[in-house]
Design a protein around this nucleic acid. Structure first.
Lengths: 229, 229
DNA sequence: GCCGATATTTATCATGTGATAAAGAAAGCA
DNA sequence: TGCTTTCTTTATCACATGATAAATATCGGC
């Protein structure tokens, strides 16, 4: 250091919290959890090309400390994926979607209320698209799970709802139809959290309308789709 | 060089086309056009963090040559934006949307057919989301143009179509309703080109269904929206 | 209050990045 | 042919990146 009165000037080579203040010593588990939490937040803003130094500075630690808890940046990113994608999935969604003791419209409304509550936030949405653009298979796997655990069941429930036979396999047309509803709802999240449009959206209400739209055309569209096979 | 028999080994510091083969000399205009075209392609795959060396190698030139045609990487990227966003917009879209000599459903169908044809490709979609995630204002400006030149006009046409008064301003609820249709259609492009789902989608047919869904609920929803004000 | 264990930092490396300056090579023209 | 122009490459810089090794500071147990 050239300047001993260096209390405002920033040392450019240093990456610690603030003016070289040492960060508090923490038990490994807590530190790792904090690191992962902040990493999710960080990468969702900066993308996965965000630097480890910037991440460390944001947490208030030095960059090499990251490598005590994660062998490599890639490992850290993988744990981020897992925390966002895997651990937030609820098998309960599928179970309740196919519970015919309730009317379909109510099941869809309640499902999309909960689903939107889980994924309609800046962090989830952005991580999802950063990963999607990278073409990572974790993304593909997630979407396949959406299809098989949510969309296909909805197709079948729709058939049952309109008194149509449920023994033949779901057609691509039926799946595309559910994708339209699903996309309409999902796109509300994109508008708000990826585009960053300020306008406040009433997601619950929008989802309800999208469901109404779907159910409005479903009977005839599904009938036509089945007939075509 | 340590090895004079170096015809297979790659010089790690070199970034030219293939084993030092000099690229053909080109007139500046043609070279700049080629560079921009390949840059669009390149950045749409790699994101804007893609390196200039990788780009140069892909084109078959050396990295510094880029800087003869673009002052900086940022300038190059800005020209990419402009080529993708600005120059592909058609004012004709708005004009034909509000041409009441044709039925609304037909206008919407024809518009979305053309719109999808323009933006439903890997390059456009990916550049759009890369830019969107960066929070660039060019993206915000594009979306504002979508709202004011496409969605708001559609709202007004919908009112006229159902014999509702068109003198009061479009309500947020009406706009959200069009966003649902628009999102449902746009999401088909996301499915195909951002998620990279292989399944072939019949975009024209899907758009038609989405339009039908919208028009199916529009009358009652818009009436309710206007009444609430 | 000392001491071993370990959480955290400092210092550093190899590599990759955007960018610049100077050398080289192909074209046009006398 | 020789000369000038300019398109293209080689060489290089300053800086940022992911990662490692060694030094340092803090904690718990005695």
């Amino acid at each position: 250091m050239e300047n001993p009165f260096d209390d405002q000037q920033d040392d450019p080579s240093a990456g610690q919290t603030e003016k070289g203040r040492r960060s508090v010593r923490m038990p490994p588990e807590a530190r790792k959890t904090e690191l992962l939490t902040r990493a999710i937040e960080f990468f969702s803003e900066e993308g996965f090309d965000g630097g480890t130094r910037a991440l460390a500075q944001r947490i208030g630690i030095t960059q090499p400390l990251i490598y005590r808890y994660f062998p490599s940046k890639e490992d850290l990113i993988n744990e981020v994926y897992s925390a966002v994608y895997v651990s937030q999935w609820k098998d309960d969604w599928t179970i309740r979607l196919v519970d015919r003791s309730l009317p379909l419209q109510q099941r869809l409304t309640e499902f999309y209320r909960d689903y939107a509550h889980t994924i309609f936030n800046r962090t989830w949405m952005r991580i999802f698209f950063f990963a999607g653009l990278k073409g990572l298979d974790i993304n593909t796997r997630y979407i396949n799970r959406v299809i098989s655990n949510l969309l296909v069941p909805i197709c079948i429930e729709a058939r049952a709802n309109f008194g149509l036979p449920t023994d033949t396999p779901v057609t691509p047309e039926e799946l595309d139809l559910v994708w339209l509803m699903h996309g309409a709802i999902f796109y509300q999240g994109i508008r708000e959290h990826v585009y960053g449009l300020p306008g406040q959206i009433d997601h619950d209400r929008s989802a309800q309308v999208a469901i109404k739209m779907y159910l409005g055309v479903a009977a005839s569209e599904i009938t036509a789709a089945i007939a075509k096979t």
